[in-house]
């Protein structure tokens, strides 16, 4: 069974880049364009890992992580933040909300795959 990844990013370009990167190596990918849409996907699927952006309209990445961590189906899914933000203050917020890894964009696709492998096993 291929591992199921949820990718949340308001940038359509990033959703395409991630889609190509992850599908190439056999991940099953669902995408959402903001936290609200992502929460609705949590109800329908059980994800092996969640990769999310931070700055998004409607519901941002930190708020989304907090809801994912309380979601019955998905509270154990490890969370990777993939964002242009790099300040220590923001990283602390991410860690407090329950993120496991913080990756600063731009990212190298091969490095992201390494991180996913490490996190998902």
């Amino acid at each position: 069974m291929s591992k199921k990844v949820l990718f949340v990013d308001d940038s359509a370009s990033m959703r395409k880049v991630l889609g190509i990167t992850l599908k190439k190596v056999g991940y099953d990918v669902e995408t959402a364009e903001d936290g609200l849409e992502a929460v609705s996907l949590l109800d329908k699927h059980r994800f092996d890992v969640i990769v999310t952006d931070l700055n998004m309209p409607n519901m941002n990445g930190i708020e989304f992580i907090k809801s994912a961590k309380c979601h019955p189906n998905n509270k154990f899914a490890p969370i990777i933040m993939l964002t242009t933000e790099s300040s220590e203050e923001m990283r602390q917020q991410g860690q407090d909300a329950g993120a496991k890894v913080w990756i600063v964009k731009p990212f190298r696709p091969d490095k992201l795959l390494d991180v996913l492998k490490k996190v998902v096993g």
């Binding site: 190509i20 998004m56 309209p57 242009t84």
Partner: peptide, 24 residues
């Protein structure tokens, strides 16, 4: 998008994303 493994592409698309995020 298919060339995101190249640093030049990442550099340009990041410049676009930073600008859009700044506005949001």
């Amino acid at each position: 998008i298919e060339m995101y493994d190249m640093s030049s592409t990442r550099y340009g698309s990041n410049a676009m994303e930073l600008l859009i995020n700044g506005l949001i």
